[in-house]
Design a protein around this nucleic acid. Structure first.
Lengths: 365, 365
DNA sequence: CGTTGATGGCTACCTTAACAGTCATATGCT
DNA sequence: AGCATATGACTGTTAAGGTAGCCATCAACG
């Protein structure tokens, strides 16, 4: 739909103010009536297609639009009622009013659908199941971070069902997911576990605390891994034999949903108090992104792993749903690196800043 | 809703482009997805009402909005899921995000209801300086009445300055203006007086009480007319000689701002305990609207005056600002009648219900 | 200090109306 | 006549909304 060339021209004439106003309005609308934009776009697409193909019959049009004829009929009836198109024996055609509407709507729809378009573009490039992006940039605005949290929380709830095991990693982003979760009651039929053992000082941002918080909100069970993160190998092996711990570890490795945050490698390494020589090594290896202890280079290859207990990347393959949440332009490179790894079906919840950054990086390649 | 004074200011700063853009977009949307725009305004109304009443329970809110509790629940669930409001044991309240959204949406809804255009249309037809209308109908919702009070209070403050004398009439509407007034400090440099002597039993709705309340809120002076309203002519003449009373009377007659409510003639006459023969007379004379003792027929002619002490219509000509406040579809005819009289520059603060009613009546003529 | 009434939230059940799928029919063009 | 199209009617499914009864909480009051 929508000849981009034309739209660009129009926009340039009108100037940036109009576009930003438009965005602001679209934003408000999307919050209060999310399906408004969808419905509007759908009808716009119909009008637009008719305008190109007219006169056109319903069967053909339905086929063209990929919807059933019956459904199309309902839409067409409405549009005719509104005086935007007429039907004759030869098929449908737009009225002058309809033609004008299509023209005026072009910019709006383009603007409204821009995020969606880029979401799918990124999803295709990285072979992700789905990308959900909220407007704005977490780097510059805290509300965007919250917004992203809410989007992730909403998506999470949509795929959760009783009997599932949910593994979560740590970080501020996931903390905001937990905070944004609207309480629900799963009658203890869901179990939430941290993907790995404890780490760092800030309790609120640890995987364990986040697991506990999510469990509380959903009235679910939670189990914790009371283990230091940086164990030696033998010590880890010994501890893993403890029944209590083994049980949790098995739970973690059988998780059906994994919720993970993504960090910038250097920042994460520093937060983990790696030694200077380790930091240098990471740098040398080209590590840019990190998620629950695994460091990735630009090509999505694992270049370093912090010794830790809990979920291993091998176990991940069996997980049905992986949800990655991360945003902010500054994280674009890190997210890209991590997601270049060959994950199972993965949904990325991000923000416009990171989305734009990632697409730009991909273009540069 | 949405503080018309502020809105107008903002709008002026941004210039006409934004408003017309907004109008254009809303127009398109209204053509293509009318029911979703309805949903949008409905949700806005809910948020707005919660914002005024919070914390508020569902039952009360449903009653206020005139919808069933069940229906409201669906909406509330959605709004909560969107992070716009929270529910607690005490009831619902807006989140900061929700508050911000309401603010940003005010202008949108104003445009969506086509209030701006209709405001100016009415102002032109009746030669008023300005018309300010809030969305909704006071007849069916109490919050609309409050909202109208807020709009009037805000406008009043915008034109008040030190040294002024403000005369007020009575009625529930003006009581809500007084209640909505945000306290300010005029250092006793403003004087508030009732437009007329006392009347009726309900103290809170009397001109005197309202004057006192407004004065208290603004830290202004007030003087009262301790006079029965229904005096004989001689008695009035005698009393008017009393220095104390004479002083106040002169103050009233030199008022620079007049705030008045408008009532339906029959209802007001009954509240004033006029005799049946007087009521019949009013009816015969075609009185439909009333303001501070003057009764007007449909053509804006004074057909009856209750004998009283205080401001006379002759004195009104010198007053710089007259603010009339009245709303509700049921008052449309009365307001129209009163405002057909040749007032000095007058600003009408009303609601959508009355505005719609008035325009319909004007069209019928 | 317990009781009661008001307010607020939650769940379950059932009715109804909107929606979409299917088939049959009418119309007009070639 | 044959094709493509619109149009209408019938129907099963589904989700929305109405109704009702329940419990929790809090404050007023005996």
């Amino acid at each position: 739909m929508g000849q981009p060339g034309q739209i660009r021209e129009v926009r340039d004439k009108i100037g940036p103010t109009r576009t930003s106003d438009l965005r602001a309005i679209i934003n408000l609308e999307q919050r209060l009536v999310p399906d408004l934009i969808d419905a509007l776009t759908k009808r716009y697409t119909i009008l637009r297609t008719v305008s190109l193909l007219q006169p056109v019959g319903r069967r053909l049009l339905a086929q063209e639009l990929g919807i059933t004829e019956r459904r199309l009929r309902a839409e067409v009836d409405f549009l005719r009622e509104q005086g935007l198109l007429t039907v004759s024996a030869l098929g449908m055609a737009l009225t002058p009013v309809g033609e004008k509407l299509v023209e005026e709507l072009a910019e709006y729809v383009h603007e409204a659908r821009d995020l969606t378009r880029r979401e799918t573009a990124l999803a295709e490039r990285l072979r992700l199941e789905r990308v959900i992006a909220v407007p704005g940039d977490s780097d510059t605005s805290e509300t965007v971070q919250k917004d992203m949290g809410r989007a992730a929380a909403q998506y999470l709830k949509s795929i959760l069902s009783e009997g599932m095991v949910l593994a979560v990693s740590g970080g501020t982003t996931l903390a905001s997911v937990a905070a944004a979760l609207v309480p629900a009651n799963y009658h203890g039929r869901i179990t939430v576990v941290p993907a790995r053992g404890g780490m760092g000082e800030d309790l609120d941002k640890q995987a364990g605390s986040i697991a506990a918080k999510i469990a509380a909100k959903l009235n679910a069970n939670h189990r914790l891994l009371h283990l230091p993160d940086n164990l030696g190998e033998e010590a880890a092996a010994v501890l893993a034999q403890e029944p209590e711990i083994r049980e949790v570890l098995e739970l973690v490795r059988s998780a059906s949903v994994l919720l993970l945050g993504i960090g910038v490698a250097q920042a994460m390494a520093r937060r983990r108090h790696l030694r200077p020589d380790q930091l240098a090594l990471l740098n040398e290896l080209g590590a840019v992104g990190e998620t629950f202890g695994y460091y990735f280079n630009r090509r999505g290859e694992i270049v370093y792993v912090t010794p830790s207990t809990g979920l291993k990347l091998e176990n991940i393959k069996r997980i049905g749903h992986v949800i990655a949440v991360a945003g902010g332009a500054s994280k674009a490179e890190a997210i890209l690196a991590v997601l270049s790894y060959n994950f199972p079906p993965l949904t990325l919840v991000t923000d416009e800043g990171a989305l734009t950054g990632m697409l730009k990086l991909l273009e540069g390649r």
